[in-house]
Design a binder for these strands. Structure first.
Length: 161
DNA sequence: CCGAGGATCATCT
DNA sequence: GATGATCCTCGGT
């Protein structure tokens, strides 16, 4: 692994973006920006949004098929709830686009997870303007890395039950 | 607590 | 010239 500070956490919130999905950046074909989406599974796809934030994705399907999972939150680390904050916290920017996340020689990599202690909740995706009805957002119930809105909702459920 | 609005720019039309 | 897979601040209740 590269020298320097090592920082990481557990992925606790994601959204899937698929081929033939209107919300997918490559829905209208390949461009310079979205080219990494067509790469090998395990490739990173980082883009800049709203003139302010970076978002970090992992390519999931075979080469040539546009697909990605947006990493929306980590726990075991402070202030990494939400895709923009996560990138700010880990100092992820466009220089981390197109990396091989399966290699520990990469400045960013992803390790295999462990068994979960809490259920995975499935909801619709957040903040998109198209295909907003698709239930392709997933998060670990009760995790501190999940969007504030859902932590509050879940706390309310706990009170009821 | 909640909703509205602004920041700010790479990318595509 | 418009748009957006976000976040923060502000004002009303």
């Amino acid at each position: 692994m590269p020298d320097g500070e090592l920082l990481g956490g557990r992925i606790v919130e994601t959204e899937a973006y698929l081929q033939n999905d209107e919300a997918m950046h490559a829905y209208r074909g390949k461009t310079a920006r979205n080219a990494p989406l067509f790469g090998l599974p395990g490739t990173s796809y980082v883009y800049f949004i709203y003139g302010v934030h970076y978002c970090f994705n992992v390519v999931t399907e075979a080469e040539g098929i546009a697909s990605a999972v947006l990493i929306r939150g980590l726990d075991q680390i402070d202030d990494a709830n939400g895709p923009g904050k996560l990138c700010r916290r880990l100092k992820i920017d466009l220089s981390h686009n197109g990396l091989d996340l399966s290699s520990t020689d990469s400045p960013i990599w992803i390790a295999r997870g462990t068994e979960l202690e809490a259920p995975i909740i499935t909801t619709t995706r957040i903040g998109i303007t198209r295909a907003a009805d698709k239930p392709w957002r997933f998060y670990i119930l009760g995790s501190s890395g999940v969007s504030r809105r859902d932590r509050i909702a879940e706390r309310g459920n706990d009170c009821v039950s």
